[in-house]
Nucleic acid binder design. Sequence first.
DNA 1: AAGTGGTCTAGACCACTAT
DNA 2: TAGTGGTCTAGACCACTTT
Lengths: 262, 262
Amino acid sequence: MSPAPAVISKTSAEPAYAQLANYLRYRIADGTYPPGSQIPPEVTLGRQFNLSPMTVRRAIGILTDEGLLKPLQGRGTFVRAIDWQNSGFSLRPLAELVSQGGNTKVRMLNIHTVKADERLADKLRVPLQTRLIHVLRLLVRDGAPVLLQSGHLLYDPRQPLVEAELDVISLSGLLSGSSNTLVKKGELETRPKTLNRGEAELLRQPEGSAAFAMEYLFWNFQDECIGCGFFLVPFPFLSFKTKIGLWFDAPERGAAGTPAAS
Amino acid sequence: MSPAPAVISKTSAEPAYAQLANYLRYRIADGTYPPGSQIPPEVTLGRQFNLSPMTVRRAIGILTDEGLLKPLQGRGTFVRAIDWQNSGFSLRPLAELVSQGGNTKVRMLNIHTVKADERLADKLRVPLQTRLIHVLRLLVRDGAPVLLQSGHLLYDPRQPLVEAELDVISLSGLLSGSSNTLVKKGELETRPKTLNRGEAELLRQPEGSAAFAMEYLFWNFQDECIGCGFFLVPFPFLSFKTKIGLWFDAPERGAAGTPAAS
DNA sequence: AAGTGGTCTAGACCACTAT
DNA sequence: TAGTGGTCTAGACCACTTT
């Protein structure tokens, strides 16, 4: 019930701004500052915890970035009601899928040069008939195919392609964050898809079963589009989760904001 | 080629930290600081632009949060290669779908009380046979059904339910971020799904077509699970996109970092 | 020892909102 | 006018890495 001693330990390994941010997070979680309410002004917090304005602001800035607080100039700082809007699905599950751990292998199904048809020329913004490389690969984990990739790359005769480079431009490189120095920007779109006959066979899934279809497109530092394609991942192997709001146990009211005391 | 005059205007409406952040972003985009390279130390930037250390740090902090820079204590600050890992799909498209604009209506298909079977009791962490409310709703936009929702709510006889409250707990409230003060945390999982006969009929899609299936679960401030359910959105009405890397046109080298000059 | 990022202070001034 | 958040300064000290 009481505002709690709520001391910030200057000797703790946890920085003061993080301690204050945690303290406020707990107070929001335990209902001391319910959604819509106003938290104490920065000067008050600064006096209460013996912190300089910049440190207080930093703590508030963290919670603001997390979507928990909404500061309004001239009015005060308020607790926001939670909503999914600012949140999103992390791509980590996808990155983990292609991380090429011990039991994961890439099986090249097909690789050959093709000439850009209208659709590809439009997508990659190259002239019709431009020479491209088409790659069809299967990611196999524990003996089971989990991901089918079909991709087109710009074929640059000045830079002969090695398999390693192919790899960088497609699966692990972009997703797992290897030291990829070629790509400036990229785009990824996900939609649900029903597997057709051929896809289902390659992925050893029943025809008509559901999968994530992810289309990608990326550019180099010269702002040339250097590759496009899609991944296909049947359901059981990939799903996207997200959590919003306050995901920890609020302490009993009156307890110190942070367990790390003294 | 030259490091550019690169002056930060103290009279600009754009704060100094944002101007510096933009300047560095441009220099990364135009290849001055390629992935893996080290940017000038904070003290150097401070001298160059006549900024105090805190202001320089703030600019670097922004780019660090964006995943563009990686500061290493004692070593320097380095430009990161881009990767999808830290990025994610925003839920905004979903929120917009249910935003209930002019042509969007909710059609209640079914609402009645049920008793928790094993699956529901487990999910909501309530005893078997607990009284629940089941809701089946269709979101109709421009006359076409775009989203099917099936949800279960804890039935609390102390708090008689009104339709408005139902709404808060399910569609618009959580997603569009209305002033929802009941929910402390929530969880959302997406997977691809093939529509079965009944779902396809309600959504007026061909049987066997693909849709996003999104399961949700949320808790109140007493850490009780108060609702669960799922959304079903057929493909053409929803897709998730994300962009990574540097999505603006880098200026010609030598130009000032920010267009807003003096 | 020198150089780097990480934290923090104790103020200042400004912009905006309410009264 | 008083109270609020927003920006910024000019230092300080610390922790870590490299030489």
